[in-house]
């Protein structure tokens, strides 16, 4: 077990290293850089050269890469290229704090909606209910996230009375500065702001969960041990709860870990639609400003998150299925 863990950790480090190298090269493979886009009165070629030198862009790619790695080893993600050059970490930390709970809520939505849809479909396999649930899952699965988000702004937000943009109520923010607002009110306000974006992500990913849950359940429901349980006199629901669903949990947990990467893709567009200033919006802004250090930092964090989510899922497997032995 310890050996397995060490092996996996080494492998994780390797994966992260490879990913950050690719990130580094990809951004620089694009034509132009942070300075070439500058347009202003004092932007003479000399001024631009000076700026390049200040950002270290006058060095060779190789030197830049070594510098970047050196910084990383010291836990330094670098500084933003955008004046006044705050550290990347300070640029990312606040958005992450806003995005993480939103993703979490979205995942809860998608798992709850998806697993229940898949369960219904598998339970009544071949029925009208199954076809409806499967159709809905496929529709959700293939729906463009931003389109769904826009529809929600148009039709759902007003009806539910939920805010459609931002992360908190500006009035409340002022009140907070004056110090006459309780934490509970702030919490509720932030929750209200993240419900719609989370729901958009939740619905789109619910399709995946529903389809996976249905197929996994249909498979376990056809197993003999399910028949055995029925023969012993267990009710249909108890059989599903006690025998079929736990045995179908493996692919669902795998999907949870794997979808983390794609969820961030969804976050990008959803945060844009809802002007939710989280990590997605930060990335969009960094792209338009060619702020490579911030992009590299964001993608590095994403890589680390995905790699560790998968590692965690793998470590969870033996708990879900005693036949799995980690070597």
């Amino acid at each position: 077990m310890t050996r397995y863990l060490l092996k996996r950790l080494a492998f994780a480090a390797l994966t992260i290293f490879a990913a950050l190298t690719v990130n580094f090269i990809l951004f620089r493979a694009l034509p132009g850089d942070a300075v070439s886009g500058l347009k202003c009165r004092q932007c003479t070629p000399e001024f631009k050269e000076a700026q390049r030198a200040a950002l270290g862009l006058d060095q060779s790619l190789w030197q830049q890469y070594v510098l970047y790695l050196k910084g990383l080893l010291h836990g330094d993600l670098g500084n933003s290229w955008r004046p006044p050059h705050p550290t990347v970490w300070s640029q990312l930390w606040d958005p992450i704090k806003r995005t993480l709970p939103m993703i979490l809520l979205g995942t809860v939505f998608s798992v709850v909606i998806g697993v229940s849809l898949g369960l219904l479909a598998a339970w009544r396999r071949g029925s009208m209910l199954d076809r409806t649930a499967t159709g809905m899952s496929l529709a959700a699965y293939s729906m463009p996230t931003q389109w769904l988000a826009l529809l929600m702004v148009l039709y759902l937000a007003g009806w539910l009375g939920l805010p459609t943009s931002g992360v908190k109520d500006p009035d409340l923010e002022i009140a907070q500065l004056l110090g006459d607002v309780g934490w509970w009110e702030l919490f509720i306000d932030q929750l209200r702001h993240m419900i719609l974006p989370a729901l958009a992500i939740g619905i789109v990913f619910a399709g995946d969960y529903a389809i996976i849950t249905r197929s996994a359940l249909v498979e376990t429901l056809s197993e003999d041990y399910v028949l055995t349980a029925r023969a012993k006199g267990l009710s249909r629901w108890t059989v599903i709860r006690r025998h079929a669903l736990p045995n179908a949990a493996l692919p669902i947990v795998t999907l949870m870990a794997l979808s983390l990467g794609t969820v961030v893709g969804g976050v990008l567009v959803v945060e844009y639609v809802f002007s939710y200033s989280g990590i997605g919006l930060t990335v969009v802004q960094a792209i338009s400003e060619r702020d490579y250090p911030v992009l590299q930092g964001a993608f590095l964090l994403l890589t680390v998150a995905v790699v560790f989510a998968n590692l965690f899922a793998d470590l969870l497997y033996p708990k879900l299925d005693p036949r799995v032995v980690l070597r």
């Binding site: 197993e223 041990y225 055995t228 349980a229 023969a231 006199g233 736990p246 045995n247």
Partner: peptide, 27 residues
Amino acid sequence: QLVFQDPYESLDPRFQVARIVREPLDV
């Protein structure tokens, strides 16, 4: 009571023997 053909399939892989044999008693 019924005994099935394939003992590789008819026992829930997640249950220990004690729980498999005890389940009918609980039911």
